[in-house]
């Protein structure tokens, strides 16, 4: 555990808390992509099956359980409790366009051809693109609530910090996981446009809106 990894995890945790707080306080999930949240639940479920097979630390187990539980709770809020506020018309990205190719790739490019390993690889690839329905939704409506942009910024920061973590681990621990690094870089690159808008607009007190 190094400082970048810890900050990354905390940023990820913060993103989830911001999202839950936004929905709970405003009693609404307007502007949030249910597709992205379903994909995240799938990511956590397939990645953390190792909860049953290996123990790393109390910290690791606690975080995994929280990520899984919060992702399903988010889906419950969006598709049940606050269903009336869910903007499904703008959430039109097709999940199968991501899940199917990513599933195929996980079968072809993995560290070991074992069920748990393929599922882990699937989750890594899927996480890298799971934000696309959310970004698609923002671009379709042309705007995002400020709280939603804070959520996206925290989520993007998490992956950027993980890249610093991998650089650190490469030099100081001799650790290098090509699959995680490539997917993590792809994931971070997807946020670049958003980061630019966040820094130039939201941090200056303006709402995040895209040019028409």
């Amino acid at each position: 555990m190094n400082v970048f990894r810890l900050l990354g995890d905390m940023s990820h945790l913060l993103a989830i808390l911001i999202l839950l707080l936004k929905m709970w306080k405003t009693r609404s999930c307007a502007g949030i992509s249910g597709k992205t949240q379903i994909l995240f639940a799938l990511v956590f479920t397939t990645r953390y099956l190792d909860l049953f097979s290996s123990f790393i630390s109390i910290y690791n187990t606690t975080m995994k359980l929280f990520f899984i539980a919060s992702s399903y709770f988010t889906i419950f809020l969006m598709y049940s409790k606050f269903k009336a506020t869910y903007d499904s018309n703008h959430d039109s990205f097709r999940m199968e366009f991501l899940v199917v190719p990513v599933g195929g790739l996980a079968f072809l490019v993995n560290h070991e051809f074992l069920p748990l390993e393929i599922l882990w690889t699937f989750s890594i690839y899927l996480e890298s693109v799971a934000i696309l329905p959310q970004l698609f939704m923002v671009s379709k409506t042309g705007e995002a609530e400020t709280i939603t942009s804070h959520y996206l910024f925290a989520l993007g920061s998490y992956r950027l910090l993980y890249i610093f973590n991998w650089v650190y681990r490469y030099y100081f621990d001799g650790f290098f996981d090509l699959i995680a690094v490539v997917a993590g870089c792809v994931q971070t690159i997807l946020y670049c446009d958003f980061f630019y808008l966040y820094i130039t607009k939201v941090l200056k007190g303006k709402k995040l809106s895209l040019p028409a």
């Binding site: 990894r5 995890d9 990645r47 690791n60 990520f67 995680a180």
Partner: peptide, 10 residues
């Protein structure tokens, strides 16, 4: 080799 991709990250 196993160590190079031990999944200790979240």
């Amino acid at each position: 080799k196993a160590d190079s991709h031990s999944h200790d990250e979240l």
